[in-house]
């Protein structure tokens, strides 16, 4: 069970945070199809930052001395840098769709094409191959929190909860969960959140009450870009061993599906992310032998192909779209450029 919960969380958390990124953009009225692209960019930036930091003596010494506080700090710093540059990258989208009133779908598609191209171009120049990895060691030895890092004995039994939540986990996972909660409150319980959402529903009315629609839309897409960039790095760190390969295996689009399935509401999105994360986990560890006594092996004996689990999130989303299109909470003004002069 521990294995199942941990693996599901590894997949669910990036999905959740990137889906929330989608919510921030769409609630402000901008369709952010570029989630995948921003994730790819964020993953690259984060991994590059880690590589540069690894070259510094301070962190080399910290690693040698097993100073895990410094290493966790480096992880958090990398997340922040990925978020910052993700936000900068997303400015391309907000500039095109807010200032130039361009087609947001095409703008997003452009970013989705640009990110892997730019990233692979640079990775090939830097590393002379198609993968950018850490210069030494791996994510598990540098960043993973284990029993021993927390000062427990290797053999100590921390109980079910302790084993699940404190052993072989990443700090990034918990930071993302806390951020998810904080930002959901920001979106629903603060004046800023209300204003942001009003710009996605009826920008003309919002403008008439003195809200700067352009600024709100910039804010929405920038927060979106920051979250997606960070989510991309968290994905690379926790599931791809801190390597950037110019793709995130369609996670950005899966996050889009999570957002739709979650009906643009944070609570539902968390649930949807866990469900889709479970599917991903089942598909990924499908054929593994039953060492952990988890349900995954039992699923394998059912004879349902792992391809079905990979496909299910998209099929479910399509079906949900089909059946709930009437009561969908899709922001009413999303995708429509705001024009002050229009009534």
């Amino acid at each position: 069970m521990t294995f199942l919960i941990q693996q599901t969380l590894l997949y669910a958390v990036p999905l959740m945070i990137v889906a929330l990124a989608g919510v921030f953009a769409e609630r402000s009225g901008i369709i952010n199809l570029a989630l995948e692209g921003i994730m790819i960019f964020g993953a690259f930036v984060g991994v590059l930052f880690i590589r540069i930091m690894q070259g510094m003596d301070v962190f080399q010494a910290a690693f040698a001395a097993k100073n895990w506080m410094a290493l966790q700090g480096m992880e958090l710093l990398a997340m922040a840098v990925a978020a910052l540059l993700g936000a900068v990258f997303s400015l391309l989208l907000s500039f095109a769709s807010v200032n130039l009133r361009a087609d947001q779908t095409i703008g997003g598609t452009a970013l989705n094409l640009m990110a892997p191209a730019l990233v692979l171009f640079l990775i090939r120049i830097i590393a002379n191959q198609n993968t950018l990895q850490m210069t030494e060691g791996d994510a598990a030895s540098w960043f993973m929190i284990k029993k021993t890092t927390l000062g427990f004995d290797r053999k100590a039994d921390l109980g079910f909860l302790g084993n699940t939540l404190l052993h072989q986990v990443y700090l990034a996972t918990y930071v993302c969960i806390i951020l998810f909660i904080v930002l959901s409150i920001l979106l629903y319980k603060t004046r800023f959140g209300l204003r942001l959402r009003s710009c996605g529903e009826n920008p003309q009315a919002a403008d008439s009450l003195g809200i700067n629609v352009y600024r709100m839309r910039y804010a929405g897409t920038t927060i979106s870009g920051a979250l997606a960039g960070m989510g991309g790095f968290v994905y690379a760190l926790t599931t791809a061993n801190c390597a950037s390969t110019g793709d995130v295996a369609g996670f950005g689009f899966l996050a889009l599906a999570v957002m739709i399935f979650g009906n643009w509401k944070p609570g539902n999105i968390a649930g949807a992310a866990i469900l889709f994360g479970l599917f991903k986990c089942v598909a990924a560890s499908y054929a593994s032998i039953d060492i952990n006594g988890d349900g995954v092996y039992m699923l394998a004996t059912l004879g349902i192909s792992s391809h079905v689990y990979r496909m299910l999130p998209y099929i479910i989303t399509l079906v949900v779209l089909a059946f709930t299109s009437k009561k969908s909470r899709v922001p009413k003004a999303e995708g429509i450029p705001y024009d002050k002069g229009q009534r």
Partner: peptide, 8 residues
């Protein structure tokens, strides 16, 4: 990949 950048 530079040509993909140009296309994007």
């Amino acid at each position: 990949y530079i040509t993909d950048v140009i296309i994007s």
